[in-house]
Each structure stands twice: as structure tokens, then as C-alpha cells.
Amino acid sequence: MLMPRLIPVLLLMNGQLVRSETFTTHQIIGDPLHEVARFNEWKVDELIYLDISRTAGLAQGRRDSGNRAYADAMEVLEAVASHCFMPLTWGGHVTSLDQVRDIFKRGADKVAINTAAFETPELITQVSKRFGAQAMVVSIDVRQTEDGYEVMTRGGREPTGRDPVSWAKEAEDRGAGEILLQSLNRDGRGTGYDVALIEQVSQAVTIPVIACSGVGVYEHYAKGLKAGADAVAAANIWHFKELADRGGKRALQRAGFDVRM
């Protein structure tokens, strides 16, 4: 039987690893490679790396930190991939098929596309046809308002007026192989997943859904799976807890899930 996946999400901002809260506050954690080495040692199921820099291309590694400065995010990807014997999804500022080709050439296995997928949905089909649906992850950022859920693009800054369920369905129809579902309201808060959102989207599509945003304690993971997600992801908890993989997997086992230890 297929085992549910537990996935760390690393956020890259201007060449530095950061933690994020509600998509607006970002705190530098450090070198973009240290965590990857740790995750490799722990044999984590998979890794998602997102470049959330406001501007594409810049790295600006701090020279005073003693960390290596990378010329751009693609250099970080290459360095990450050479250390990574697990599936690697790369996302952030991806707008063209040529870029996707380059990302795979540098060692990523899947690409996560958010804004460009929404604004030029033909890109989903192009990537899916050229590299296979399994390589095309459509990332959806959702904001909850009094009126319900709304898809947001451009790093959570641009409202689209679109309902996440209908967008997820369209993404699937256009050839997406997975959905990465994030919540602006829950990001970095540690209050748990938006279970209703996960339920709605998981029921609407037949492709795997990766739940993200809101995990504060290991017990939150099981709630994401019970809501219908195929994989549960988180960012901050991986930085601030020792042996975050083991801890998360044990909590899932306690909740009755068969996970890869």
C-alpha cells in the first residue's frame, strides 16, 4: 500500500533560507544547504524547495554570515540536487517551458508553478505533455475571507476572485499531476491545517493533494490526511524541532497511518 508522505518545505528568499508567517513576515534561518543535508540523513520522504524572493534571479547571500553566496536561485538548486537522493520539487518564479527544462536539467524532479499556472494555464498542459503529469505540481495559495475561499497569486498579494475548488479541477484537467495547497491565513501560525479547505479540494480532484500551512505540533499532520490529503507538508516545524521527521512519523503511526520509518 502507498504510504502517506511527510514533506518538509524549505523557503528560499534572496539566497537565504527563511521561515514565513502569513506570507508577510520572513525570518532568516541560514544557509540553503544545511537543512537539505540533515533531511537526507533522516531519509525524509521528499523535499519541496520554494524560492519566494520578491524578485526573480537575485541571490544576495550575506557575505558576513560565512555562508556561501550563490549567484542565483538556480545555483542553489544545483547544489541542493547534488546532495539529494529523494524526490525534489522546485518552485518559485517559474514562468516558461524553457525555465522548466533548465530546472529539471539541474536536478529537480518536479516543478511547482503558482502564478504563471493561473495567468497562463496553457503552461500546465505544456509542461505536462513535455515532462509528464507527475512532474507538474500546481501550487495554490488560498486566502479565507468572510465570503469564503479565494485563490491568491503573486506570493499571496494578488486576489483572483477564483474559488480554489474550481481552480484545482481546472488544473487537473489541464494536466497537473499534484496540487500543493497552501493557506495564507494558516501560514506560520502553528494552529493546524485548514481542514475544510483540504477536504473540499481533495474531494474535487483525483490527483494527489499535498496539504501545507499551519502545522504547529506533530498531531496536526494526521488531521490533514484524514481530511483527504495524500501528503502532508510543513515548513517551520522542521526548523525548530530536533528529529522532526521521526517525531512527525511517530505521531502519524499513533494516529493509525502506515508511514515509511
Binding site: M3, R5, T206, P208
Partner: peptide, 8 residues
């Protein structure tokens, strides 16, 4: 769910 994605 197909594609079959993950550890088995």
C-alpha cells in the same frame, strides 16, 4: 489516485 506518487 493516479499518478501513483509516493513511497510504496
Amino acid at each position: 489516485r493516479v499518478p501513483h506518487v509516493g513511497w510504496n
